[in-house]
């Protein structure tokens, strides 16, 4: 897990801060991840995990700091959510958000990597390759049987899978995954772990998670956030041995 910084760095976040009505949600936070790396971000409630993701995906603008992306070190702060998504950052939300009124196929088809501009989409028709790709993703997340069903009819776990499937269909370079295991059975969790580890072979994957057991199974570098900044970074054993981390998690 020592791909680290340098030429292979995909995302470089440095010195960002943001405050809401005087409350500092993120305080001088720096973070970087390589081209093919799995990273777990943990931290107690209110540590700024979700806000951090909001900043990377363009939903929230930081008061200061920079977010640079890719080999060209593109400044992401100048781009909006859609442009950042097209640049190759995919996000899975904590609460599964799928388009419940539409079929699983439509959901995946919408996520499928393709042109996004209105005019192109208007004349876009699904070809055989697109259908095959949807089928492939659906099989990968175990929803092949559910393709014609409406997403709203799926169970909570299935919606989680559908959202992961949509993330895969997007073919992003960086995947931001917020609490993927919430509401899943034990077997599903293992499946998720395997999927994430496999993805990390050629993608950058950031997993925000509460569940230490799940993080342990990911077996990767861990970043601990606390009060909007990085408290500790390293292997899970290393950070759990850190006195400050213990204090934050157990000292109350």
């Amino acid at each position: 897990m020592s791909t680290g910084a340098g030429a292979a760095t995909l995302l470089e976040v440095s010195g960002i801060s943001v405050s809401f009505d005087g409350f500092k949600a993120i305080n001088n936070l720096s973070f970087s991840i390589g081209r093919a790396e799995l990273r777990a971000v943990i931290g107690p409630n209110g540590a700024g995990k979700t806000t951090f993701m909001d900043i990377v995906t363009g939903k929230t603008r930081p008061d200061e700091g920079s977010v640079l992306w890719g080999p060209m070190s593109t400044n992401l702060l100048k781009r909006n959510e859609a442009q950042i998504a097209r640049a190759g950052i995919g996000r899975k939300f904590q609460k599964p958000t799928v388009f419940e009124d539409q079929s699983v196929t439509d959901n995946l088809m919408m996520a499928l990597k393709a042109h996004r501009a209105p005019w192109r989409v208007l004349f876009w028709r699904a070809g055989a390759r697109d259908a095959a790709r949807v089928r492939e993703v659906a099989e990968q997340v175990g929803l092949a049987e559910q393709l014609p069903r409406k997403a709203g009819e799926l169970s909570h776990g299935q919606k989680q899978w559908l959202e992961i499937g949509m993330l895969l269909a997007q073919e992003p370079q960086l995947l931001l995954v917020d609490e993927p295991a919430a509401g899943m059975t034990l077997a599903e969790r293992e499946q998720t772990t395997a999927l994430l580890v496999a993805l990390a072979r050629d993608h950058a994957v950031v997993v925000v998670e509460h569940d230490m057991e799940f993080v342990r199974r990911l077996d990767c570098k861990v970043t601990v956030l606390h009060e909007g900044s990085v408290l500790a970074e390293g292997s899970l054993d290393h950070v759990t041995a850190d006195k400050r981390v213990i204090e934050v998690y157990l000292g109350r």
């Binding site: 442009q83 998504a85 009124d101 539409q102 996520a111 996004r116």
Partner: peptide, 23 residues
């Protein structure tokens, strides 16, 4: 078509559609 899919997505959850990369 897919366009209809996208605009219905916008109706139901605008932010999500944005995170899929649609302007």
């Amino acid at each position: 078509g897919k366009f209809g899919s996208v605009i219905r997505g916008i109706r139901d959850d605008e932010a999500r559609v944005r995170f899929l990369g649609y302007p």
